[in-house]
Write a protein that binds this DNA or RNA. Structure first.
Length: 211
DNA sequence: AGCCAGGCTACCG
DNA sequence: CGGTAGCATGGC
């Protein structure tokens, strides 16, 4: 039996903020890269790579700053998975500077890109992503959900605060990442579109904290 | 002028 | 295991 409150909260958020159109892509010229009610992206492997890069760059960083970094990477032709590793370290670091932690994030991007290039067509497992230096639970799940369309719920700092504020889980402050992920996944159908929209809505709300 | 932003690693007890 | 300093920049 599913706990209706989890789905009710989704509808409440969606009514308040509307479809979010995550994950934004630089190749989409309208709406600043967002694509509401269109869940076909990524279409190409290059778009998939861009989502992964963005997921790493946005760790503890506002998306506004990440946009600048992505624009810079594109300008030096380093957002392309085939050229990233051939671009000089100093140029990459300069490009991603606006996203902060540029020394760490440079290393994370290098480790990730090596792994990404080693893949053929299959979807990697969650554990494979977690074994990469610089990829933690939220980044791994964001990549699986938005780059690979796997029905995995992404938990972030806003998610816990939202549950706490709405008293939807006893002692939410003590709940682990996996506990919270399980709460959502146990109470929602395994639908990547629903999970993509829900997480995006939680972030939209987290920025204004209305609900 | 602080505090926060779509976290993670390393290291501590 | 759980808790936390350090990582860096830009916006408000």
């Amino acid at each position: 039996m599913k706990n209706k409150h989890i789905l009710d909260l989704y509808f409440t958020l969606h009514k308040e903020y509307g479809s979010q159109g995550w994950w934004p892509l630089s190749s989409i010229k309208t709406n600043n890269g967002y694509h509401p009610n269109n869940y076909k992206y990524p279409v190409t492997n290059q778009e998939r790579f861009e989502i992964c890069v963005g997921a790493i760059l946005t760790q503890n960083t506002s998306w506004k700053n990440v946009e600048k970094a992505i624009t810079n990477l594109k300008e030096i032709n380093a957002l392309n998975m085939l050229y990233f590793l051939d671009t000089p370290e100093a140029k990459i670091k300069q490009a991603i500077r606006p996203a902060g932690y540029f020394n760490q994030k440079y290393k994370k991007l290098v480790e990730f890109t090596k792994f990404f290039l080693s893949l053929k067509k299959r979807t990697p497992t969650r554990k494979e992503f977690l074994d990469i230096w610089g990829i933690g639970p939220e980044t791994a799940d964001s990549i699986l959900l938005y780059a690979y369309k796997e029905p995995i719920f992404v938990v972030d700092a806003y998610t816990k605060k939202l549950l706490l504020k709405n008293k939807m889980i006893p002692q939410a402050e003590k709940a682990s990442y996996e506990d919270i992920q399980k709460l959502f996944m146990d109470n929602l159908e395994r639908d990547y579109k629903l999970y993509q929209e829900y997480h995006a809505l939680i972030v939209a709300n987290g920025k204004v904290k209305k609900i």
